[in-house]
Amino acid sequence: KLLSSIEQACDICRLKKLKCSKEKPKCAKCLKNNWECRYSPKTKRSPLTRAHLTEVESRLERLE
């Protein structure tokens, strides 16, 4: 599967780190437990900047 097509777990399953069936409108866990089942939009991760990478590398060197 391509990364862009990976389905996201519902908010509660993601928060509780449960295996989500990803069914809509309610996944199996939410249906069974009568929880409100919501699927928040995916958040875009910002790409690493060179400055951040350099900072992490220098912190790693100090720890070694």
Rank of each mutant, 00 (worst) to 15 (best):
E64A: 06
R14W: 01
K1W: 03
L53D: 00
K17S: 04
L3I: 11
E36G: 13
L15D: 12
C20F: 06
S21Q: 02
K32L: 10
C20K: 05
E7C: 10
S4C: 11
E23S: 14
E23K: 12
P25Q: 06
E23Y: 03
K32Q: 12
K22Q: 07
T54D: 09
C20S: 03
R59M: 07
K17W: 06
R59C: 06
K1M: 14
V56W: 01
C37T: 02
R38V: 13
R50E: 05
P47Y: 07
E36W: 07
A51R: 10
K26M: 13
C10L: 00
R38M: 15
P25L: 05
K16D: 03
P47K: 08
L31N: 14
A9D: 03
K1R: 11
P25H: 02
K24A: 14
E64C: 10
Q8R: 07
K1H: 07
R45F: 03
E64I: 11
C30R: 03
K16N: 06
W35G: 13
P41G: 09
K26C: 13
E55H: 10
L63C: 11
S58G: 12
S4F: 13
L60F: 09
A9R: 02
L63H: 02
L31Y: 14
L15R: 07
T54E: 12
C37F: 07
C10E: 08
S5R: 08
T43E: 15
A51F: 10
K42R: 12
L2V: 15
L3Q: 07
C37P: 01
C13V: 06
E61N: 10
I12M: 08
E23I: 10
K24T: 15
K32S: 11
L3P: 07
C30Y: 05
T43C: 14
L53Y: 04
L18R: 04
E36D: 14
L48D: 01
D11L: 04
S21C: 01
T43I: 15
T49W: 03
K29N: 07
P25C: 02
C27G: 01
E57G: 02
L15K: 09
R14H: 07
C10A: 05
P47S: 07
P41W: 04
R62K: 09
Y39F: 09
S4L: 15
K32G: 11
C30A: 05
N34E: 13
E57P: 07
C13H: 00
K19A: 09
N33M: 09
C10F: 01
E23D: 13
C20P: 02
L53M: 14
L2S: 14
C10S: 01
K19W: 05
S58E: 15
R45S: 01
R45K: 08
A9H: 06
K22R: 11
E36Q: 09
L31D: 15
L3W: 10
K44D: 04
W35Q: 14
E23P: 04
C27W: 03
N34C: 15
T54L: 07
T43D: 10
S5C: 11
L60A: 13
